[in-house]
Simulated assay, not measured.
Amino acid sequence: MAELTLYLDLLSQPCRSVYIFAKANNIPFNNHQVRLFKGEHLTEEYGKVNVLRKVPALKDCDFFMAESTAMLLYMARKFKTADHWYPSDIQKCAKVDEYLAWQHTNTRPNGSKVFWVKCLTPLILGQEAPAEKVDAVVAEFNTTMNNFEEKFLGNKLFIAGDEISVADLVAIVEIMQVVAGGINVFDDRPKLAAWKKRVVEALGEELFLEAHEGILNAKKMASEPLAPELMEFLKSKLLSMK
């Protein structure tokens, strides 16, 4: 039995990055499903694994982690994955670190807003989001993608150079959340579309599609009742979202 346990819900972007990385690198792990829409991350039992009550979480014997990008680097080091994932070359590594630092306040929150407004508003509030709100969050994400293409991709095949790294993996799962919200980000962006194709090929199309199957069918969530405490939390967050 594997010593490593990953606590995951593949509806979550960070969970998908951790899952795909482990699978792509043949890292043995126990997959402990934590169903967010059932509120399982809010339970006292899960709080013993991750006091922050978020996913993903990592348990390696008696060692615990609660941040996905740190988990990726931990697994890369512990399991000595191929160098391209987190390069030993100081400048390539710096490019990976730079994107991982930037995405926390750019790709991640701006992509999540699109998904929340487009996909979760009808589910939680029972009505479509106002058109002006949708337009605003989509415009903000488009600015993020402009910056991503210009600053982080440039004329390179991948963020750190000629090979895929954890930075590309973290980027693609966040962008796919916007696709799940009904916005085809790759339309009219040939550079971004070509990069996505390379990323999918590097990861393996079967694994990529498996990891994204749930989120790309997110509207089916409407048929499943949500945990009451989670419903209240989501409603409050949506109403306060600007």
Rank of each mutant, 00 (worst) to 15 (best):
F115D: 11
W116F: 15
V117W: 13
C119T: 12
C119Y: 14
L120M: 12
L120G: 06
L120P: 01
P122V: 09
P122N: 10
P122L: 13
L125Q: 13
G126Q: 04
A129M: 10
A129K: 12
A129F: 13
P130I: 07
A131L: 03
A131S: 06
A131D: 09
E132V: 13
K133L: 09
K133V: 04
K133F: 03
V134H: 07
D135G: 01
A136R: 01
V138F: 08
A139N: 07
N142T: 03
T143W: 13
T143K: 15
T143F: 11
M145G: 02
N146T: 03
N147C: 02
F148P: 00
F148D: 01
E149D: 11
E150N: 08
E150P: 04
E150Q: 10
K151W: 09
K151H: 03
F152G: 12
F152D: 11
L153V: 06
L153W: 10
G154N: 02
N155G: 11
L157K: 12
I159P: 01
G161W: 07
D162Q: 03
E163C: 08
I164Y: 04
A167H: 07
D168S: 02
D168R: 00
V170F: 15
V170Q: 14
A171G: 10
I172C: 01
I172Y: 00
V173P: 05
V173K: 04
E174G: 04
M176Q: 05
M176H: 01
M176E: 12
V179K: 12
G181T: 11
G181L: 07
G181W: 14
I183F: 05
V185F: 09
D187I: 05
D187R: 02
L192P: 06
A193H: 09
A194I: 10
K196H: 08
V199S: 10
V200D: 14
L203N: 06
G204P: 06
E206L: 01
F208P: 01
F208A: 08
F208D: 08
E210D: 12
A211K: 00
H212P: 04
K219Q: 11
M221W: 04
S223W: 10
P225E: 15
L226H: 04
L230P: 00
M231V: 13
M231L: 14
E232H: 11
E232G: 11
F233S: 13
K235G: 03
S236C: 10
L238H: 09
L239W: 11
S240I: 05
M241V: 09
K242A: 06
